[in-house]
Every structure is written in C-alpha cells, then in structure tokens.
C-alpha cells in the first residue's frame, strides 16, 4: 500500500467514524440519593448550627456590661500572667531542651542516661504535682534554701511556677528536637562531612534547618498545651487567665465569664497559629515551586533541564 493510499484510507475512516459518533450531550444530572451518610451529615450540621446559635443567643441574652467592667480588667491581667509564664518558660525551656536533646543523642552512655532520666521524670508525672512539689516542697526546706541563698527566688510563687513550667516544657521540647534531629538521614551528615565542613557548621547549616521543619508543628502543639496548662499555676496563688475566670465565676456565678475566657484563649492560639504558618513558609521556602517574573509557575521540566 502506498503512502497516498494510506492517507486516503484514513480520511475515509475519519468520515465514517464522525458520521457515526453520537452528538455531544451534557452529562446526565447527578441523582442525589438520600444515603445514610447524607442524612447523618445533615443531622450533624443541624446540631452544630443549633449549638452555635444557642451560644450566640446565650451570649447576647446574658450580656452584662456591669460584669464586664468589674471582671474584664481582671481577666486581662490574668491573660498577661498567662503570656508572661508561657513566654518565659518556653524560651528558657527551649535553651534547656537543646542541652537535654544533645544529651539524648550523645554517644556517652551516662550522658544519655541522665538526659533520659530528666525527660522520664518530667513527662511521667503530672504538671500539677510538679508545681505543688516545687512550691510547697521548697517551703518545707526553707532553712536549706536560705543557707544556699536561694530563698528569695523560691519565696515568690511566680518564680516557682515559671521554674516548674520551664523544666516541664524542656523535657517535652527535648523529645521533639531529638526526634527531629534523628529524622535527618545519615547521608546528610556524611555528604556534608565529605565536603569538609566542621560538625558545628554541618549542624547549623545542614541539619538544623531541616530538623526545624519537622519540629515546628509538634513545638506549636507544646506551646498551646503550655498556654492552657498555665491554669495550674493558680493552685499556688498565681492567677492566670483561667484562674481569674474561676475567681470571677465563683463571685458572680455568671457562666459567661467562661465564654470570655474561651474567646481570649482563641485569640492567643490563633495568633500563634498565624505565626507558625509564617514560620513554616519561611523554613520551607526552598521546597516551593519557583515562579518567573510574571508570577507564572515555572514548569518542573524546565527546572530540571
């Protein structure tokens, strides 16, 4: 068969096919069955909507400006205490956690054991018990602390709370950091070493930036836990946001103070969430698809070529 014959044949075939093709039709309208899942979904959504509406209605009906002027400033004071406690303990705890994480990853058996014991104790016992132990425990041994010249520190309830929270969060953060560093493949270390980089430079320039990506979200969780956990400080007379709320409730017996507190917690956690999103964008900027000057995504093949 010659080439010309072949193309003629193809043309004939095309006409034959297009003659017999069904005309294009819109797809059939999808039939929405009343499936079990759909009914359950509607019921649940109705329930959620009802709860949301009930909360809003309750809030409007219970709105009490006198209560707000009386207890509002106290709640804000409490919020300040919460933020102070969390910022202090998370920041100092992070430094401590770095040391403990290094201990956890150490090649020395004793260093490893010591770091493990620290983490084991502070993760294994309740924060409430630790707070009580540090505050009232220190009170029982006043002479010892006075002799050591430390009583001025332990006399103050806020210091005791901040110290306990620091130690507690250090244990949790150490596990997060150690886990994230362990997650970086050995090849990264080996490759960097092959380039002749020193261990410190390898850690700062190669390992830490990658480990931080893994550690970021668990660390955010830990901080949120601390924000809420700081309520425990009120058992040793440090009244944080929730402590002040409970005080206000026990005087006014008005449930809405808890709603205010919930709102304030939401604001704080939302601020943290946004901060964390920004931090994640910054840390993972090398993983984003590149963009050309017009804002168009450059196709992967071009990058590869």
């Amino acid at each position: 068969m010659t080439m010309r014959e072949m193309s003629a044949n193809q043309a004939a075939n095309q006409a034959y096919v297009s003659d017999r093709l069904l005309p294009a039709e819109p797809p059939p309208a999808s039939v929405r069955h009343w499936s079990k899942a759909r009914i359950a979904g509607i019921v649940l959504m109705t329930l959620w909507a009802a709860i949301a509406i009930a909360l809003v209605v309750f809030f409007i009906s219970a709105w009490n400006p006198a209560l707000l002027t009386r207890y509002g400033p106290k709640l804000l004071d409490g919020l300040l205490v919460t933020i102070e406690l969390v910022v202090l303990s998370v920041a100092i705890g992070a430094v401590l956690a770095g040391i403990v994480a290094a201990g956890r990853l150490s090649k020395n058996r004793w260093t490893r054991g010591l770091a493990f014991a620290f983490v084991y104790f502070f993760r294994g016992t309740p924060l409430l018990a630790q707070t009580f132990l540090v505050y009232y425990g220190a009170g029982q041994f006043r002479e010892v602390f006075e002799a050591a010249g430390l009583w001025w520190f332990f006399r103050d309830a806020f210091n005791c709370a901040a110290l306990t929270f620091t130690l507690n969060t250090a244990a949790y953060q150490a596990e997060i950091y150690a886990g994230a560093i362990r997650g970086i493949s050995v090849g990264q270390w080996e490759g960097a070493r092959a380039l002749g980089l020193s261990p410190v430079v390898i850690f700062i320039k190669v390992v830490a930036p990658q480990a931080l990506i893994t550690a970021l979200r668990p660390l955010g969780n830990e901080i949120i836990f601390m924000i809420k956990g700081s309520a425990i400080a009120s058992v040793i007379t440090v009244y944080d946001l929730l402590g002040e709320t409970r005080l206000a409730f026990s005087r006014s017996f008005d449930f809405q103070v808890y709603l205010w507190a919930a709102g304030l917690y939401l604001v704080v956690v939302e601020a943290l969430r946004r901060l964390w999103d920004a931090a994640e964008r910054r840390l993972t900027r090398h993983l984003k698809p590149a963009q050309d000057s017009s804002g168009q995504q450059v196709v992967a093949e071009q990058l590869g070529a």
Binding site: Y136, A138, G139, Q140, R142, R155, V235, I236, T237
Partner: peptide, 9 residues
C-alpha cells in the same frame, strides 16, 4: 495551703 505558706514564711 495558706497555712503551709504561713509556716514556711
């Protein structure tokens, strides 16, 4: 609790 803190000074 306040009794504990009174005795601890």
């Amino acid at each position: 609790e306040y009794k504990l803190d009174l005795s601890s000074g």
